[in-house]
Simulated scan of single mutants.
Amino acid sequence: MTERALSFGAVAAAYERFRPGYPGELFDLVAGYAGRPLRRGLEIGAGTGKATRLFAERGVAVTATEPDAAMLAELRKHVDVRTVRAAFEELPAGERYDLVYAAAALHWTVPEGRWERVAGLLEPGGVFASFGGPFLLTDPEVERAVATARAPFLDRDDVPSPDGTPPENAMQWPGTELLESAWFTDVQQHRIERRFVMSASDYVGHLATISAYLELPAEVREQAFERILRALPERVEVNADIMAHLARRRAGRDG
């Protein structure tokens, strides 16, 4: 767990306002893959509960885990579930769930032993799901203008693939790791298309919840946002597709 992973609490209210929720189509995808009732679920890095609501409102008894107290406090305003303030690596062994999932949070977990820990939290045959995706400006000219405005402050504002998988690869991370894990089988990758049109100020509000900007000194961060805002038209279209990875815990392994 890095400092960057713990940077979101300072903007918990903005995170709740500017990060979108998840569509019912995503739950249907996970539930259909499971092929059996999802009664108990564990969420890794729940944040303000964007994905928590999706599963809890559809009958899953969710335990939402999150290391940041401010993010958990914001989550509790919006959904009534069991919460645990802890990083994934700090979760005690013992309890097992039908579903373990992470919404735009898995890349913050420690790679060593990751899949054995996930498997240890799942019933045999239980489902693991990871999903999320960046906000990408659909207009190439607008994207270039934003990149130019951002350049004095940041070379890039995304989080690179943790295992170095290039964007053009057919299977993306964490599917690449799941395919190699002896703990999981039936690895699938799905894309759910999403497009949003938002104001320039709301787009910058979303940028204010991205860790790359949160690492900048406050004064520098505000300068970056001012330049980016000036580079934007009044309204922008973004590609916010969700990339979902699903896998099943092998029933024959102990752990």
Rank of each mutant, 00 (worst) to 15 (best):
M1Y: 03
E3G: 14
F8V: 01
A12W: 00
A12D: 00
A12P: 00
R19L: 03
G21R: 13
G21M: 09
G24H: 13
L26S: 07
D28H: 15
L29H: 09
V30A: 06
V30C: 07
V30R: 01
A31K: 06
Y33Q: 03
A34I: 05
G35D: 12
R36I: 02
R40A: 11
I44S: 03
A46N: 04
G47F: 10
L54E: 05
A61K: 14
V62N: 00
T63S: 07
M71K: 00
K77P: 03
V81Q: 10
V81M: 10
R82T: 10
R82Y: 06
T83Q: 08
R85G: 02
R85Y: 10
A86S: 11
A86I: 12
A87V: 00
A87M: 03
E89N: 01
E90F: 13
E90T: 06
E90C: 08
L91I: 12
P92L: 06
D98L: 11
V100Q: 04
Y101D: 01
A102E: 03
A104R: 14
A104I: 08
A105D: 05
H107Y: 13
W108A: 00
T109R: 04
T109W: 02
T109P: 02
V110R: 15
V110F: 06
W115Q: 02
A119E: 01
G120C: 12
G120F: 12
L121C: 05
A129S: 06
S130N: 10
F131T: 02
E141M: 06
R144H: 07
V146P: 00
R150L: 02
A151Y: 06
A151L: 07
P152C: 05
D157E: 10
V159Y: 14
P162N: 14
D163A: 06
G164D: 01
T165F: 01
P166R: 13
P166W: 13
P166A: 05
P167F: 02
P167N: 07
M171A: 09
W173I: 01
P174Y: 12
P174N: 14
T176Q: 01
E177N: 06
L178I: 03
L179M: 14
W183G: 00
D186F: 09
D186E: 15
Q189K: 09
Q189Y: 02
H190N: 09
I192P: 08
E193K: 15
R194C: 04
F196D: 12
F196W: 15
V197E: 15
A200D: 07
A200R: 13
Y203R: 03
Y203L: 04
G205F: 02
A208M: 07
A208V: 06
T209Y: 00
T209A: 01
I210Y: 07
L214A: 07
L214M: 09
E215G: 15
E215F: 13
L216K: 14
E219L: 13
E219M: 11
V220M: 11
Q223V: 04
A224N: 05
F225V: 03
I228R: 04
L229Y: 04
L232N: 05
E234C: 08
E234K: 15
R235Y: 09
V236E: 04
V236H: 11
V236I: 12
V238Q: 04
N239Y: 14
D241W: 15
H245T: 07
L246N: 08
A247G: 08
R249D: 01
R250H: 05
